[in-house]
Write a protein that binds this DNA or RNA. Structure first.
Lengths: 337, 337
DNA sequence: ATAAATATCGCAATCGTTTGCGAATTCGTT
DNA sequence: AACGAATTCGCAAACGATTGCGATATTTAT
């Protein structure tokens, strides 16, 4: 099928010179005469010669490929990050190979293997919710392949990270709810072993404490999906325990909660304010539109790629954690100041 | 940085045998004695030897990489398709390299170049809305690299396609609106040079005609995003031209329309039914939840990968167009039968 | 015992490109 | 005229793995 792609040897043969001369001519090596260069370049142009990236990789031991592992490509936040990675990588002439773990630690391990044997120059990773053993990442680092984690990082591994200040953002969101008159707050939270969700939880808790609100663990409820958000609202409603302010671990959960509240004819934000997290695509679509924390996924990906490629090309060994700024996006699911 | 990855030569040197023997031992070549095989395999295991994919590629002229070009990774439908591609590719030990054109034909051309010089074995593509010249795709095909188009295909290029029957799906959706009592229908449409949107439009038009409804071009309105959907509803409302049934070219547009209708306190579906297209993530989130056409992106990607890899490995030359089934998803933005 | 068959392994070329080093040619200088 | 310098280019090795073929060594058959 594959018809023969033009190689440097083809050009050499046609011109009756050696392959080395062609190679040097194409990259303006001073040893080559102007005339030879001209002939070579013209023919290369005519035959649409493209250097064989694979041969170059073999030579240089660099593939110019970045491997990515995310839980799900379909998830809006992750695809935003990927898009950011792709942008910076493109600028630097890197390609990206994407794999997804589907929140399955086993798959994550096999993804590492795949990318390693694909000889990627580095990896950008957001781990599974359930990843507890990090040996596969240590193996990768052991081969000299750098990793940059984003969003969901791994505790106890010495490597670069790009995150946001989940604690601070949650604190601010909670305080906004308080300032706009909410007196009875609740937080829908995610799995505890994820640092980002526990940080958001602590931000919520500390904001309450600082503002002299009573706090106990009943104010933290496990719910981190559209369905669970819905269910939990119905449950709270039945038990007559609905709050007047709700801060959720992500936008989807908020959307689920709002969907239930709408069905119950409970007015948002008059009777209950809802604050999400992530500023995903859905936050503009909900009724009413959702106040949320902007977590700039594109920038996160872009930054991760920047750090990684810099590490690849300059072989620096310093380990840094980059904290990206967040900001509150106030829409119509919360009252105004 | 990159510490030396163990190669076949390392194993050979340690064991005092030749590289060729190691190579054959690892793949159970009958020429090699049992003892030698055992020694080689044990050492390979111990040193965590992984064959160098790049060297293999150079040898076989196969990279085991599939290149993907989509307008936007972030778009839910496309990321669903990518996820499907990734799944089948993973099963067949292929990697995927993803590029996005950002709806920019220039970028699409450069993406083709990038993937070509990355020596991908084949490509899966959904083109830009504005791509009018297809020469870059013809160039790719000219190098013997097969392409499978999905969703947005290219007219006049002889290559495989995976699509849905947009016409039929639109026809059925429209007919559903009619059957549930809508008498005054409108269609929010996309750019005309995209086959999929014009097919959806014709499906809408023919359903009207078949049901003896008057049809004229005023029933087709250009609006294919959340914002435009919103604006157009407000405009129609001001002009007192709101329909009692709305079929949109995609879910986002429907969501925008519903957002405006909600603000105008117009009841869905009592006063106006809304029918979307795609069954994206947002269709469950809208208030009320959106009736829509299921366009199985995951299956589309999976199928495209199947066709492509089959073509790569078996070097078949037949060109086929696979039409995937759709079905109506009836939720709460339309009345029931 | 000798030829033939078998078992086991190494040499070298190959994939496409790069690069140090040496070779050949031309030019300039005295 | 002769010698050194400069110009221009080719040879060959290297990257890691595969594979046809040839080279031993061992065993079997006659």
């Amino acid at each position: 099928m594959k018809s023969h792609q033009v190689t440097i040897k083809d050009i050499a043969k046609i011109l009756g010179i050696s392959a080395s001369t062609v190679s040097r001519a194409l990259k303006d090596h001073p040893d080559i005469s102007f005339e030879t260069k001209k002939k070579v370049k013209e023919l290369a142009e005519e035959l649409k010669y493209k250097p064989n990236a694979i041969a170059l990789s073999l030579q240089s031991n660099k593939s110019h490929i970045i491997g990515i592992i995310v839980p799900q490509i379909v998830h809006h936040f992750f695809s935003t990050v990927i898009s950011g990675i792709e942008e910076y990588a493109g600028e630097k002439a890197y390609n990206i190979i994407i794999t997804q773990s589907n929140e399955n630690p086993e798959k994550e391990i096999s993804n590492c293997r795949t990318l390693l044997s694909g000889r990627v120059d580095g990896m950008i990773v957001s781990r599974t919710k359930d990843t507890e053993n990090f040996d596969h990442f240590r193996n990768v680092l052991g081969t000299g392949t750098p990793i940059v984690f984003f969003d969901r990082t791994c505790h106890g591994i010495k490597t670069d990270k790009v995150v946001i200040d989940d604690y601070k953002a949650a604190y601010e969101a909670t305080e906004y709810l308080i300032k706009t008159g909410c007196r009875n707050l609740l937080h829908f939270s995610g799995p505890e072993n994820l640092k980002i969700t526990s940080k958001r939880m602590w931000g919520f808790a500390d904001a309450l404490k600082k503002n002299h609100f009573p706090f106990n663990e009943d104010l933290i409820i496990k719910a981190d999906s559209f369905e669970e958000g819905r269910k939990m609202i119905f449950k709270l409603h039945k038990e007559n325990k609905l709050p007047d302010g709700l801060f959720t671990v992500n936008d989807m959960t908020a959307a689920g909660a709002m969907s239930a509240l709408n069905e119950l004819k409970i007015k948002i934000p008059e009777e209950i304010s809802v604050f999400g997290f992530t500023n995903g695509a859905i936050s503009k679509i909900t009724s009413p539109s959702l106040s949320t924390v902007e977590q700039n996924g594109h920038l996160m990906g872009y930054t991760a790629a920047e750090i990684l490629i810099n590490k690849i090309e300059n072989e620096t060994h310093e380990v840094l954690t980059k904290i990206l700024p967040t900001k509150l996006i106030i829409r119509n699911s919360t009252r105004h100041l």
